[in-house]
Design a binder for these strands. Structure first.
Lengths: 203, 203
DNA sequence: TACCAAATGTGATCGCTGTTCACATACAAT
DNA sequence: ATTGTATGTGAACAGCGATCACATTTGGTA
C-alpha cells in the first residue's frame, strides 16, 4: 500500500477507522478517541468518516461489536486449550474473561457502554448474542447444563462474578496498585471459591 | 430562596452544582451532564463553576464520591432492617446493591468511571474506602469473617457477583427488555445460588 | 472507447463544549 | 469606612461532532 497509495480514495476506510479506534483507545484510552483523531491517523479528512458511519456512536458501536467477537474467540480458545490439556476448563474460561479485561481495558470498557453505543444495532446485537450463547451453553460447555437456551442462576453467577471482578479491576478500587500477576492470583482465588458450586464438565 | 434570592452571590454553589449533576444525570443520563447545563440549571454563568471545581472531572469526582456514600448507607440500612426482621441479612445486602444500581443507573455508572474521575482525589478515595470496609467486614457483617482488614476470596466473590450482575443489567444485554421485578427475581435466584458458600451470620 | 451515475473524499462552516482571564460585585474583618 | 478576599460574569479561545455543496475516482453500460 505504500507505493500504490491512492491520492484520493482510500479503499478500505471503514475498517481502517476501526483500527484507528483500536490504536488510540489502546494507547490513550477510550476518552481520547475522537473522530478527528481517527481521521488524522488514517490520513483522511474528518468529514470522510461520515460516509461510512452515521455518527461517532455508530463507529463506537462497530468497535464494540468487534471487541465482543474477540472476547468470544478468546473464551473459545481458552476452553479448547484447557480441554486439550485435561485441565479445568471452567476455571480456564473464567480466567480468560478476566485476563481479557486486564490486557485490553479500553476494549472491555467499550463493549459495555450503553450510553455511547447503539445497543440495537444488528451487528452489535449479533455479537452480544454470540457471547451470551457461549455462556448459556454451560459456560462455554465447561459445566453441565440442562437448558442451553436460557441462563441458569448458576451460569449467571459465573458470568456476573467474572464480569464484576473484571470491572472492579478495570474501573474500581480493587487491587489498584498491584501487579498483573497479583491480580490474576486474586482472580484465581475467587474463581476457586465458587468452583464447588458447579458440576464437572460433561465430556 | 425565591424572594431572598441574591442577585450576585449564590451562597452554596458547590453543592447546588452537585444537585444539578444529580438531576440532569437522573433525567437525561450521564452523557447529558454538561458544565453549561449544570450552570444554567442553577442559574449561574458557566464560568462560575470553576471557582468551586478545578474542572469538569473534579465535579464528577465529587458526585461519584457522594454516590458511593449513598450506596454505603443503602447497604447499611438493608443490613439493619434485615437483622431487625430476622431475615437473611446477606441476601438483603446483596439485593440492596443490585437494587441501587437499577434504581439509579446514572449514579451507579458515575461511581465507577475511571476515565472521567480523579481516582486519587482524597474524598473519592475516602468514600471508596468506606464502601470497601463495609464489604471487607464480612459483607457488612452478614457473614463470618476472619480478617476484617482484607477481602477474602469469598467476600470478593460476593462483591464481584452483585457488582457484575448490576453492570450486566445496567450496561449489558442481560434481561434487557424485562421489568424491574423480573430483574429482581433473576438477581435473587443468582444470590441464592451462591448462598450455600457462606457461613451464617455471627450475631 | 466514451460516458455517466454512484460511491467516496474534501473544505468550509455551524453550534456546542470545556476552559481561561480580566473584570465586577459582594462579604467579612478591621 | 476601608480593604482584602471570595465569589460571580462576559467575552474569548481551541477542539469537538456534524452538515453540505463540491471534487474526484470508480465501475458498469452503451
Amino acid at each position: 500500500m505504500k507505493n500504490g497509495k491512492r491520492a484520493y480514495h482510500h479503499g478500505n476506510l471503514a475498517e481502517s477507522l476501526l483500527n484507528a479506534v483500536d490504536d488510540i483507545a489502546s494507547q490513550f484510552g477510550l476518552e481520547a478517541v475522537t473522530l478527528r483523531a481517527c481521521a488524522k491517523r488514517v490520513g483522511v479528512a474528518p468529514s470522510s468518516a461520515f460516509r461510512h458511519y452515521a455518527d461517532k456512536r455508530a463507529l463506537l458501536t462497530a468497535f464494540a461489536a468487534r471487541a465482543l467477537h474477540q472476547l468470544s474467540n478468546t473464551l473459545a480458545n481458552a476452553r479448547s486449550q484447557a480441554q486439550a490439556n485435561d485441565s479445568d476448563a471452567f476455571v480456564a474460561v473464567c480466567m480468560a474473561y478476566i485476563e481479557f479485561a486486564l490486557e485490553k481495558p479500553a476494549f472491555f470498557r467499550a463493549m459495555w457502554r450503553e450510553e455511547t453505543i447503539y445497543t440495537n444495532d444488528e451487528h452489535y446485537v449479533a455479537a452480544a448474542k454470540q457471547l451470551t450463547a457461549h455462556l448459556k451453553g454451560g459456560f462455554a460447555g465447561t459445566i453441565s447444563d440442562q437448558d442451553p437456551s436460557s441462563l441458569s442462576p448458576q451460569e449467571l453467577l459465573a458470568w456476573s462474578s467474572v464480569h464484576g471482578l473484571a470491572n472492579l479491576f478495570v474501573e474500581g478500587p480493587v487491587a489498584n496498585g498491584q501487579s498483573l500477576s497479583q491480580k490474576l492470583q486474586v482472580a484465581n482465588d475467587m474463581v476457586l471459591a465458587m468452583r464447588p458450586l458447579f458440576a464437572p464438565q460433561h465430556s
